[in-house]
Simulated assay, not measured.
Amino acid sequence: MSWYRHLILAGAVAIGLPACAPTGSTATAGESSHPPTPAITVAAAADLRLAFEELGRAFEAQSGTAVTFSFGSSGQLAQQIRNGAPFDVFASANVELVDDVIEAGKADRSTKSTYAFGRIVVYTPVPNGPTTLDTLAAPDVERVAIPNPDHAPYGVAAEEALRAAGVYERVAPKLVLGENVSDTLRLATSGNADAAIVALSLVTTRRDGSWAIVDPALHRPLEQALVVTTTDPARAEPARRFAAFVGSPAGREVMNRYGFVLPGEETR
């Protein structure tokens, strides 16, 4: 999986202009000295899809800077950045993966910030289905989807919670692995799993199925951080502004609505 930016830098090319411009035909002040702000591309953890798509629209309306997103598992996105993928911002579901790209020299350490703490839920596509870790071990639950713990922080949290609840050994034979937390939800909604452990942010606005929040004491905190990764000065400035927008009052309001716990808040 790979994503690449396609940017067009606007420039005026004069072809065959007359020696003297007609009287009154003057360029708009600042037009040539202030080229359009380039669009930016954000590599974002899959749990951010709904929240960041809304944030991207709000940021573009406010700033005039277009934002495109590449959503995926944080581990795979971090690997792409280390390999030179041209993203401008990395918003991870795990702060340690942000530290990894910083240590690899692929990000601006001064822009690192924690923007949210995630929460996991047990989701089932049917009303009154299994929504607790204990019920996932029941004989009538045949398949349970979780994100792949090898590269998805939400998968790590799901496995930790199952182990802490004492049901991992009984649930392990039923596990099916999603590529990321969004793909994991798809496995449940498509009927390929009876239940799934996914991000609260992806189900809080759904009107189908049922879900319940997993006790956060059963897994390590899902501290989510972001960092600016571009080395292009023209792109670094709007990238920093987007990063700041996520943590602004407007950004926090959106993140809060999708169920994220914000820095400075108590776990609800």
Rank of each mutant, 00 (worst) to 15 (best):
Trp3Thr: 14
Leu7Phe: 05
Ile8Lys: 01
Val13Phe: 09
Ala14Met: 12
Cys20Ala: 15
Cys20Thr: 15
Thr23Ala: 12
Ser25Glu: 15
Ser32Arg: 07
Val42Thr: 04
Ala44His: 01
Leu48Trp: 14
Phe52Ser: 11
Phe52Glu: 14
Glu60Cys: 00
Gln62His: 12
Gly64Glu: 13
Ala66Val: 14
Phe69Pro: 00
Ser70Tyr: 10
Gly72Phe: 05
Ser74Lys: 05
Leu77Ser: 04
Arg82Val: 15
Gly84Phe: 06
Asp88Gln: 07
Asp88Gly: 05
Val89Tyr: 06
Ser92Asp: 05
Ala93Met: 03
Asn94Gly: 06
Ile102Asn: 05
Ile102Gly: 05
Ile102Gln: 03
Lys106Met: 13
Ser110Pro: 08
Tyr115Leu: 12
Ala116Leu: 02
Ala116Thr: 04
Val121Ser: 08
Val126Tyr: 03
Asn128Ala: 15
Gly129Trp: 03
Pro147Leu: 03
Pro149Gln: 12
Asp150Arg: 14
Ala152Thr: 12
Ala158Phe: 04
Glu159Asp: 11
Arg163Ile: 14
Arg163Phe: 08
Ala165Pro: 00
Ala172Ser: 13
Pro173Gln: 09
Leu177Val: 02
Glu179Arg: 13
Glu179Val: 14
Ser182Thr: 01
Leu187His: 09
Asn192Phe: 11
Asn192Trp: 08
Ala196Leu: 02
Arg206Asp: 14
Gly209Trp: 11
Ser210Tyr: 00
Trp211His: 13
Trp211Pro: 08
Glu223Gly: 02
Ala225Thr: 14
Ala225Tyr: 10
Ala225Val: 10
Leu226Asn: 11
Thr230Met: 09
Asp232His: 03
Pro233Tyr: 04
Pro233Ile: 11
Arg235Val: 08
Ala236Arg: 15
Ala243Trp: 07
Val246Cys: 02
Met255Gln: 11
Arg257Ala: 15
Arg257Tyr: 05
Tyr258Asn: 02
Glu266Thr: 12
